[in-house]
Write a protein that binds this DNA or RNA. Structure first.
Lengths: 319, 319
DNA sequence: TTAAATAATGTTACCGGTAACATGCACGAT
DNA sequence: ATCGTGCATGTTACCGGTAACATTATTTAA
């Protein structure tokens, strides 16, 4: 690999001038810059990341910390990682995947943390390196997330427009911010339309929502739509309805939330709120690097507007 | 952060002695070793990875390259990554996720490559850094994989033991090594039992196997089991059978392959060949680091024996 | 006209490790 | 007693960058 020195010799200048061309180009004359650029191209110069890291006392490593149980979340986080990695690569940072188990092992320059719960507030606050949280939170940490409230509002509205008269919310049994926001979107729509709300909550497993639908089947009149807080719950609801002989989407509607993988393997595919996960991953990376490079303490949060992904679980036209 | 020098001063020795205690402990007397260890503990010494990387002309970065389209494979690879990351972390290496797009950007010390197809043989052969392929191949690259043949043999045998009289294989329409091996396991069992084989191949999408079952429903007599080369195909077959009114597992059986996620979201859950993916990921990491650290050219391949994950798509007892 | 300010480039030292060589000391053979 | 030998430890230089300071050339102000 060619080094600064190689470039310097070829261009007949000192290492320092080459370094300046890269880092402080305004302090070098245009003539020299051209010379140096030319030499860099000739020897195919790429900076040595380790040397930079050493002199800057940095590691060029970003830890991506997944605090949730990985197996409940796999497909989702893979996309997020791809986004983060894409952003970091561009600036020669590399991504390290950690969990609660091995969080402390080894050094890094910053963190992207996801799956944070209330109880994590304390130790995360103690961290000395910049961080970005993936997932809304009310503790003041910078975060990136989907606009959860807008998502459920939007899809509840769609269900209403398609003629379902009763909207029942099936939420996640966790007192976390994103869940509140999703419920809030549903509630807002119902209030605006003077409808009666009904919310049930379960752990995020399809068999629980499925069982719920089966157990209460006699209470659900045709023309009901289940607004679910996750595709997993929607999948269960869909199965429950089908096993009770309900017709989807004619008599019963189901909507999900996430739009990663599960909505597609369901049959019929779930009409869901699709999050722009790869893009959010890139935003996490960009935001974090910005904080690291420019020594910014707080840079505010970022909400991505979700889109509706059309499947076959709600009617295409008004009944 | 404490450095070698800090430790050295505290222990009243030179940097070099401390370095030797770490890297060549046999060249230092026991007394000094104790002294140095004590000092290291006192200042909480952790080696500076960047400095090591600089002097060894290494990067401490391993690229994990997914050559397949990520969206068809998400849940699978997330687990693999977790395994790889776990292995690398222990030795202070960090993992970089790359795809075809950004493969060349930035330096590294080695590669774990997955989703390799025949056409990739050439350029992978040109790589100058150590590599491990995830997924069997017949080009001589070291690999880690499940024993695919044993897997389909095992599960076909189970179907047979449970009394299904006809076994139909639904494979993937790709002329890759792992597919051949999976078919081979099936074929071997059928030959040993003097049964007639029947193989169909599709792209790895559930709706294709589903459509196939529906289109040919009249040809499938009760007591048939579909041995599928992936959980995705199995999911489709399961749906096809159900939509035609076939009873699972009473009259029809379905088996899958992979045991990651999809088999669990199916209903009933798919009886499948479960791969030990996290462990294989760790093996990839360990193998690669071994090659890097010890300058080994070729270290042979590694086959993991799969296990059967029992779901509800084949009978529990003989009919 | 000349001293002082300013801009462009070069020199040196350092980041935290490690290899290679240098030193000093104990011990056995002569 | 003398010398070589081997072992334990220390010194030096270097990996590839960058900050801080030094030097030189060019302007500007008095």
């Amino acid at each position: 690999m060619a080094t600064l020195n190689d470039v310097a010799k070829l261009a007949n200048v000192s290492k320092m001038t080459v370094s300046r061309v890269i880092n402080h180009p305004d302090k070098v004359t245009d003539d020299l810059k051209q010379l140096v650029y030319q030499a860099m191209r000739e020897v195919d110069y790429h900076p040595n990341v380790a040397a930079k890291a050493l002199v800057n006392n940095s590691t060029r490593i970003i830890k991506f910390c997944v605090l949730e149980d990985i197996d409940t979340t796999e497909p989702y986080y893979m996309n997020l990682m791809i986004g983060i990695a894409r952003s970091l690569d561009a600036q020669q940072y590399s991504l390290q995947l950690v969990t609660r188990r091995n969080f402390d092992i080894g050094n890094c320059d910053g963190y992207v943390i996801t799956g944070m719960r209330k109880k994590d507030f304390d130790w995360i606050g103690e961290l000395k390196k910049p961080l970005v949280i993936f997932g809304e939170n009310r503790f003041g940490f910078d975060y990136v997330d989907t606009n959860n409230k807008a998502g459920t509002f939007m899809i509840s509205n769609l269900a209403l427009k398609r003629g379902y008269e009763r909207l029942i919310f099936i939420g996640m049994d966790s007192r976390e911010s994103f869940e509140y926001s999703r419920e809030a979107g549903y509630l807002q729509l119902l209030q605006e339309n003077q409808m009666v709300s009904e919310i049930h909550r379960f752990d995020n497993h399809s068999h629980l929502s499925q069982q719920f639908v089966i157990d209460n089947w006699d209470k659900f009149e045709p023309n009901t739509c289940f607004i679910c807080a996750s595709d997993r719950l929607a999948l269960g609801a869909e199965r429950g309805i089908e096993s009770c002989g309900g017709l989807i989407p004619k008599d019963y509607g189901v909507t999900g939330f996430d739009g990663v993988f599960l909505n597609q393997v369901a049959f019929p595919q779930i009409t869901t709120v699709k999050q722009a996960i790869v893009e959010m991953g890139m935003a996490c990376g960009d935001k974090l690097l910005d904080k690291i490079v420019n020594h910014i303490q707080t840079s505010g949060s970022l909400m991505f507007e979700p889109k509706i992904s059309v499947g076959g679980t709600i009617r295409v036209n008004v009944k």
